[in-house]
Structures are given as C-alpha cells and as structure tokens.
Computed example of a mutant assay.
Amino acid sequence: MRFIRTLHGDIHPEELGITYSHEHIVCRPPYWVEQGADDLLLDDKEKSKQDVIDFKNLGGQAIVDATAVDYGRDVIAVKEIAEETGVTIIGTAGFNKSFLWDAKLPQKVKEVVGNYNTYYEWIDSTSINTLADFVIKEIEEGLEGTGIRGGQVKFGTGYNRISPLEEKTLRAVARAHHETKAPMHSHTEAGTMGLEQVELLKSEGVNLEYISFGHMDRNPDPFYHRKMAETGALLSFDGISKIKYAPESTRINCILELVKNGYEDQILISGDTARKSYYKHYDYGLGLENILLKWVPRFIEDANARGFDGEKLIDKFFIENPARCFTFKK
C-alpha cells in the first residue's frame, strides 16, 4: 500500500505533480513572536495565498509545508489555502531545533500535550516514547488535535552540535516513523551535523532511503554531499533564491556534481521561504514563483551546456523524487 498523506486526504504518489519540497506558508513561531521579529512571522493568510496562486499559475501542483509544532504553524489556514487554490499541501509532524524551545508553549498546544510552560520544559520532562506517541497521533489522528493529518515527520539539530534534547526528539521521531511508516525530514542548521544524525538514525534502525535532509546547500561541500548521498537518503537543496548564502552557480555546481556521480534520484529542490521579505505579496520579495519562473530555466540552460539533460533532471527533482520521497510505504 503506497500513498501520500496531504492536508485534504491521502492521494496516489502519481497525483502529486510538480512539488516544492520545503516551504512555510502561514506560521507565527512563538520564539520569534517573543523576540518581536516581525519578518519571520508569516501571519497573513491572504498574502500567503497569493504567493501560492503565483506558484500554481506557473504549473506548480504541490507544496510540502515543513512547519512543525514548535514553529507556530496555522494548520487551519494552510488547509484553507490548499482548498481555495487547489494546490496540494503536505503537513509536518515532529519538531524543529532546540533554540526555539525557550519559547512559551501556546495554549492550543498545552491543550494537547499538557500544562507545561515552555517547549523546553515539555520535551525535557517527557519520555522519548511519549514524545513519539505525540508525533504518531499527529500523523494518524491530526495535527494539534485538528483532525488534519500530517504527511511527514521531522526533527532538527543545531549548528555544529546536537543537544541532548535534539537527540531525544530525533529518537522520538524515528520511532514514530517506524510506527506510522511516514517519510522523515531532517532540519540541519546551516547544513551541518548530517552525518552525525545518520549515525543516530542508524542506531534507531531507520532505513535512510526514507528520509530527506534539509538545507544541504547551506553547506556547499561536494565531498559532504557525496557522503550523505551514499547513505541512500535524499538531499534537499532548499535555499534556492537566497543569494546571501551563496550564488546560484554554487548550488547548481553542487547539484550537478551529485548528478555526475549518479545521485540524481536523491535530489529535492525548494526555497524554504520563511520570511515576509522573501514573499512577493508580503514585502516585494522574489516569492514562491521565483524557482519555477527564473531558477528552473537557468538550471536547464546551465545543465544542458555541460552535457546533461536539464529538462529530464527538472522532472526528477520536482516530480519523480518528491513522489517517491513523500510516500508512506506500508
């Protein structure tokens, strides 16, 4: 039995279509609310929806919303955007990374997990298996008790280190994956600690072909990418459009180096568009349209010039690989 779980029900993998594999659509991260960081609050459903419509008008069909519970997701608003635009959206169960856990636990989350004060207190006070049960319920029953089920499980670690609580959530998410067969996604801060995450996942018996590692292009090291790909995992190049981290030529070189070494079936592409200033309809940014509108033609031209079949690779990165990556394999 193979299916992809979306916010509006389960679909066949072949129905997914052109997919952005890591985005954020409507979210109010409690940590950034407390810091007064307005740019990191995607808090206007209608503006987010307009960017999703731009994506759809360019042929986009599906988006993976990688917003976990500790990043202030708005499950209802995102489901409404999916229904109003016709774009398939996949939701995310699990956790992000530990520095966010100093934030106060919102009342709606307290109602589901118990009367803890902060995410840190909740995770620190709760056993691995009980945390796993929380993630399992989000996949099998609904995100934050909404009845809207998640389609992947996520964990994250910090920059050049894995804290004890991050290891705890990694193990909880791995166990939830075993129970639900949901695909896994990893947040790697600035692309670091991927290989260390791999060792912990192996100790939990995870088949690494069922996981995608995020933010690989934040660490544009072809040797590192090759070592990650050798595990069988998928590598998410989800910083497209973010020139402040690296020029597109650097990302494309890393991607084509993986293709040259036979790993084209393990590459995902997205933008991790998580700021108002990245969105076109919030603050005049490049928006969700930029990858399909400008990056894809540029990639095809560059790949073809180097002797690759750029169009075929785009189909792999946006259609074939996501359909395989986000499939439940029961």
Rank of each mutant, 00 (worst) to 15 (best):
K104P: 11
K104G: 10
L105H: 06
L105F: 03
P106A: 03
Q107K: 11
Q107N: 10
V109D: 00
V113C: 14
V113M: 07
N115P: 12
N115M: 10
Y116N: 05
Y116L: 05
N117T: 08
T118K: 01
T118A: 05
Y119P: 08
Y119Q: 05
Y119R: 13
E121L: 03
E121F: 03
I123S: 03
I123T: 01
I123K: 00
S125A: 01
T126S: 04
S127T: 02
I128V: 11
N129Q: 03
N129V: 10
T130F: 07
A132I: 05
D133C: 13
F134L: 11
F134T: 05
K137D: 05
E138D: 12
I139C: 10
E140M: 08
E140W: 08
E141L: 06
G142C: 10
L143Y: 14
L143T: 04
E144G: 09
G145N: 06
I148K: 04
I148F: 08
I148Q: 00
R149Q: 13
G151F: 00
G151T: 00
G151E: 01
G151V: 02
Q152K: 14
V153M: 03
T157E: 08
T157F: 04
T157S: 13
G158P: 12
G158D: 10
Y159W: 09
N160P: 02
N160Y: 14
I162K: 01
P164C: 04
P164I: 01
L165F: 07
E167C: 03
K168H: 13
L170K: 14
R171S: 13
V173N: 00
R175T: 15
H177D: 05
H177P: 02
H177E: 11
E179T: 09
E179S: 10
T180D: 07
A182V: 13
P183H: 13
P183G: 05
P183S: 09
P183I: 01
M184L: 03
H185K: 14
H185W: 12
S186D: 15
S186P: 00
T188L: 12
T188Y: 01
A190G: 11
G191L: 01
G191M: 03
T192V: 01
M193C: 09
G194W: 00
L195W: 03
E196C: 13
E196A: 13
V198I: 04
V198W: 11
E199P: 12
L201G: 06
L201Q: 09
E204R: 12
V206P: 10
V206E: 14
N207C: 08
L208S: 14
E209S: 06
E209W: 04
I211L: 14
S212V: 04
F213V: 09
G214D: 05
G214L: 01
M216K: 02
D217P: 00
R218G: 06
N219R: 15
D221Y: 04
D221V: 00
P222M: 09
Y224N: 15
R226A: 14
K227Q: 04
K227F: 07
K227M: 03
A229G: 02
T231G: 02
T231F: 01
L234D: 08
L234I: 06
L234P: 15
